[in-house]
Amino acid sequence: MTAHQLIFAYLAIAITGLSVMVITRRNPVHAVLWMLVLFVHIAILYLFLNAEFLAAIQIIIYAGAILVLFLFVIMLLDVKDVEMERRFLGLWPAGVVITAILTLLSVIVLREIDVFPPLGQFSIERIRSEGNIMTIGRVLYTRHLLPFEIASLILLVAIIGAVVLAKKRKGVE
């Protein structure tokens, strides 16, 4: 086992365990905090995959923005402890079993993937020499310019939508 593999093993076990922690916490605040740790681990995984930019936005956007939004909402809603007493729905054993089957099937299928397309031009050396951000930027602003602009529109819609939805309406009720 190389050092690489060791670190991957640690990360894989940690990510799996943390995921279980996240979904089983009684208090949503705790779940979000576990999620934060999980995201840091995923960011590290990205670094191993030569994706420094992704690691950065994983921390900044996911951990820094989205999770903070979650925390805000949780604080805002002031969920009573009574409500948190029962964590799971009645159908939870069925859910776990069925999902386990799905996962198992997926693993079986994915193991058999053996056809791969020819390697692309972005070899590790090239990315290293150019720098990850520059490579991503170049691709993003040339080949994927239109989706990029559409993404900005989606964000705009989200902003407006969130404001409209969360606004207190006068006269309603």
């Binding site: 159908l91 089957i101 799905l102």
Partner: peptide, 14 residues
């Protein structure tokens, strides 16, 4: 119930 829809979706995927 949101969850049962999810469950059915998973069943479908299976």
């Amino acid at each position: 119930l949101l969850s049962s829809y999810g469950l059915i979706m998973v069943l479908g995927a299976i």
